[in-house]
């Protein structure tokens, strides 16, 4: 019944290419072959109708850069897989989409909204390589 410990969500084939990318230290996003629209995570183009099974979208190398859109600083532990303090944040990527992540590489109290950040890859206990972000 208890589900503490580091989460191991089962990702389906839609997200596999993303994690294959992070394993190679590459930050991939979906990009429309027709118009260049970026999406993350897996998802279609919003500029026009999509092809069958989103065939117009392609996992592509992205900048891995962005800025902090909003954040909170965890002070009370809710799961001992995540020692406090840590920064939970939404980063707005340069390509447009947002991603839930952690800000690392600086003191939590130094994080600011709109602060420019860049991706770092960290091995997680569940065997995946996760994208976190640090100040530029």
């Amino acid at each position: 019944m208890s589900n503490f410990g580091f989460p191991s969500p089962q990702f389906n084939e839609d997200m596999q290419p993303f994690f294959e990318g992070t394993a190679q230290r590459k930050f991939k996003m979906m990009r429309c072959r027709q118009c260049g629209f970026w999406n993350w995570p897996y998802g279609g183009c919003r500029n026009h109708d999509n092809e069958a099974y989103l065939a117009n979208m392609e996992w592509s190398d992205a900048s891995g850069r962005g800025k902090v859109h909003s954040f909170t600083i965890a002070r009370v532990p809710f799961n001992d897989a995540f020692p406090v303090p840590y920064v939970y944040a939404i980063v707005e990527l340069d390509e447009g989409p947002i991603i839930p992540t952690n800000i690392v590489g600086c003191a939590p109290e130094d994080v600011r909204i709109d602060m420019p950040v860049t991706v770092v890859f960290e091995d997680a206990p569940n065997g995946l390589v996760l994208p976190r972000f640090k100040p530029v």
Binding site: N3, P7, P9, F82
Partner: peptide, 14 residues
């Protein structure tokens, strides 16, 4: 605690 949903990304970020 709750069951981690399939494909939920944010729980891995705490």
């Amino acid at each position: 605690p709750y069951i981690h949903k399939e494909g939920a990304f944010a729980p891995m970020m705490g």
